[in-house]
């Protein structure tokens, strides 16, 4: 077992242990913080697939995060008002079933990623960054003007969606759901990046021309990765909306895209657990420094600068070195 694998296991066990301790210590706020960290980690894992393996600097992943959130918000708001989403040509009702909402969130973000990716992946470099950013802002302003679902003010949901056999209003049980998703997503992406698909994606980042000469279409490869990445981030958005029971256009904003990128860069681009560590550190800084100063982002910025300048491979790179990393 490599040092990095041991580190991954310890990190994930710690993320699970803290809320369990908080549950017994009756500190529900700590459980909520851990849940937020786990959700952000899922979003970061989604971005890390295209950023770390594919070298695609997407500044539009908030699009998928927001779509997942709005999928949850729209379905749950209709369930709470008993108003159907549509009556013609087919009757579509709202729902407060988490599994149904997850499926809708995954589909919505997957379709959006397919369309956005199909256009944006025809470009590269700074043009790709700008196009993904532009799509994110398009969705942001659409959500701002979408008064049916709260417009600029956002939309509160007065219920917590259901999961069979669990009391989702109990913070520890909701954390459990998110944690299981984190494990599923983490194992899935870790397996994916070791598969021929993941290796070819990594190779395409190193040289598009060389990948083509072995018979691989890099465009299809990147588009597939982009869709998977968007779906994972969309799932995180749905969980985030359920945690807060609130959705707002800020889920689509470029700041959200930037924060997801910060989780990845802080933890370590292309490192399996980089987004998990990045999200945990981000939430910890937000909590502890945020209590000291409203300007805690200055300290976060300073930390990010230090990491980028001196810790290639992020915090994990600093802790473990550049051992067996596909950077």
């Amino acid at each position: 077992m490599s040092r990095e694998s041991i580190f991954d296991c310890v990190l994930i066990l710690c993320l699970a242990a803290v809320p369990i301790w908080a549950h017994f210590a009756e500190e529900p706020f700590i459980i909520t913080l851990a849940t937020r960290a786990a959700i952000f980690a899922i979003a970061g894992i989604g971005l890390n697939l295209v950023l770390g393996q594919g070298g695609l600097v997407s500044l539009g992943h908030a699009t998928f995060f927001g779509l997942g959130g709005y999928a949850m918000g729209i379905l749950a708001s209709h369930a709470q008002t008993y108003m159907p989403l549509s009556e013609w040509p087919i009757l579509i009702e709202g729902t407060k079933s988490m599994p149904v909402i997850w499926v809708v969130a995954l589909l919505a973000s997957g379709i959006a990623a397919l369309l956005i990716g199909a256009l944006s992946l025809r470009t590269s470099g700074v043009y790709f960054i700008m196009i993904t950013l532009a799509f994110g802002q398009m969705f942001y302003y659409f959500a701002v003007s979408w008064s049916a679902y709260g417009g600029d003010d956002g939309l509160s949901i007065y219920l917590r969606n259901d999961f069979p056999g669990l009391n989702t209003l109990d913070p520890i049980q909701f954390f459990l759901i998110v944690f299981v998703w984190l494990l599923v997503v983490w194992i899935f992406t870790a397996t994916l990046i070791r598969s021929p698909f993941g290796l070819a994606l990594n190779a395409s980042r190193q040289s598009t021309e060389r990948v083509e000469t072995v018979g691989i279409n890099p465009y299809h490869l990147r588009l597939t990765a982009f869709v998977i990445s968007g779906m994972i981030t969309g799932l995180a958005g749905a969980l985030f909306a359920d945690l807060n029971r609130f959705i707002s256009p800020s889920m689509f904003s470029w700041q959200t895209s930037g924060e997801i990128m910060v989780f990845v860069i802080l933890g370590g681009v292309a490192r399996r657990s980089g987004p998990i560590l990045g999200a945990v550190v981000f939430i910890a800084l937000e909590h502890f420094l945020g209590g000291l100063s409203d300007y805690w982002h200055i300290y976060l910025g300073a930390l990010l600068l230090l990491v980028v300048l001196f810790a290639r491979g992020g915090l994990i790179g600093m802790l473990l070195g550049r051992e067996r990393v596909h950077e």
């Binding site: 021929p196 290796l199 990594n202 190779a203 190193q206």
Partner: peptide, 16 residues
């Protein structure tokens, strides 16, 4: 012009 940041085995698998 191998893929420098993949292992030998990964270089081969990626092209398989």
């Amino acid at each position: 012009r191998c893929f420098p940041n993949l292992t030998v085995e990964e270089n081969l698998i990626a092209a398989a």
